[in-house]
């Protein structure tokens, strides 16, 4: 398997957004994360530990940002400016008691400093600026709860991690995944530096030495390897499950059926906030959701007919073309 071969495949599948490279894909696995349903409970993250032989690194190494949580739930405290009513004690409370509540605010105020990351602002145009708050409300409390965001490898089509690998250990598969070949990896960590989502995880240590004291190691999943020191790793969209499903379909001379299998995180999600499937299959649930929300692959800027639809991709303006669609969180105001 020559480097040449890798590069050929790479350029074959990793085509620029303009060329619509994904048309050649056999499958293209994608995901949808509905933040209206996500409760931030962490079930997906632990399911990922269980499925993918992720080592537990301990408190000290967690403190050095060496935790190997391929799927993490980010929790942000800032809130968009959606103040339902003035959150400070109202001066005209007497008027309220008499049955004259203040008018409901439905207009969202732009609160984004326009000088901040100008490139990103273009992503959603005015819509984006309207929706995104900066630094929370003036309220004394966390009025709208928390903002939870499950982050797994976004499996970008125009992945920033791929072109920087000096040994072509990270490459694009015919399924549209960013794959990491552990045997090829030399641990330069360029890919991780280049990932805007910080979703690549480096084995700084030989975790197998102490992460699975006997008999904990009996839980390890034989369908994928245990990675050693000096190797980069990341979410694979449970490629071992994809492989089983594809092999099974092939043995039965049929196509993979939507919903026949899913990744560990999707399968366990207690609220069903995560959806997984093949975007090359127009009838799959993910395809339907992407098209309902008028988000298209291969674009750096969406031109939605209905600007109110919730679908967006995280940091889409960076031209990464991710395979994970997020649906905005919803709050009553």
């Amino acid at each position: 398997m020559s480097l040449n071969n890798i590069l050929t495949n790479w350029s074959r599948y990793r085509k620029g957004a303009e060329e619509g490279g994904f048309h050649e894909y056999e499958h293209q696995w994608g995901m949808v994360v509905d933040l209206n349903k996500c409760i931030g409970c962490n079930a997906c993250s632990v399911a990922c530990y269980a499925e993918n032989n992720l080592p537990v690194v301990g408190e000290k190494r967690c403190g050095k940002n060496q935790a190997m949580n391929w799927l993490r739930i980010e929790r942000y405290w800032d809130e968009p400016d959606l103040e339902p009513y003035n959150a400070t004690p109202s001066a005209n409370i007497d008027a309220w008691i008499e049955g004259n509540p203040p008018a409901k605010k439905t207009e969202l105020k732009p609160s984004m400093p326009s000088s901040y990351l100008p490139g990103l602002l273009e992503e959603g145009g005015q819509n984006f600026e309207q929706r995104v708050g900066f630094g929370g409300t003036k309220s004394e409390f966390q009025d709208f709860g928390a903002s939870f965001l499950p982050m797994m490898c976004q499996q970008c089509h125009a992945a920033t991690c791929e072109p920087v690998c000096p040994v072509a250990a990270t490459y694009h598969t015919p399924d549209g995944l960013n794959a990491q070949v552990y045997n090829r990896c030399i641990g330069s960590r360029y890919c991780s530096n280049n990932c805007p989502y910080r979703l690549r995880y480096f084995n700084f240590w030989s975790y197998y030495e102490d992460a699975w004291p006997e008999p904990l190691h009996m839980q390890l999943n034989p369908d994928l390897s245990v990675r050693d020191k000096g190797v980069m790793e990341k979410c694979t969209f449970c490629i071992q499950r994809i492989r089983v499903a594809k092999d099974k379909a092939k043995m039965e001379d049929r196509k993979v059926i939507d919903g026949e299998f899913s990744t560990a995180c999707v399968q366990t999600c207690p609220t069903g906030a995560l959806v997984f499937g093949d975007m090359q299959n127009p009838d799959s649930q993910v395809s339907k959701l992407w098209s309902y929300h008028q988000v298209e692959r291969g674009k750096t800027k969406q031109s939605k007919q209905n600007k109110e639809l919730r679908g967006y991709r995280v940091l889409e303006g960076l031209n990464t073309d991710p395979s994970v669609l997020y649906l905005e969180r919803v709050r009553e105001v």
Binding site: M1, N9, T173, V181, L224, Q240
Partner: peptide, 9 residues
């Protein structure tokens, strides 16, 4: 097949 992840895991 010649894809790395066909055989590597």
């Amino acid at each position: 097949p010649f894809d790395c992840w066909k055989c590597h895991k």
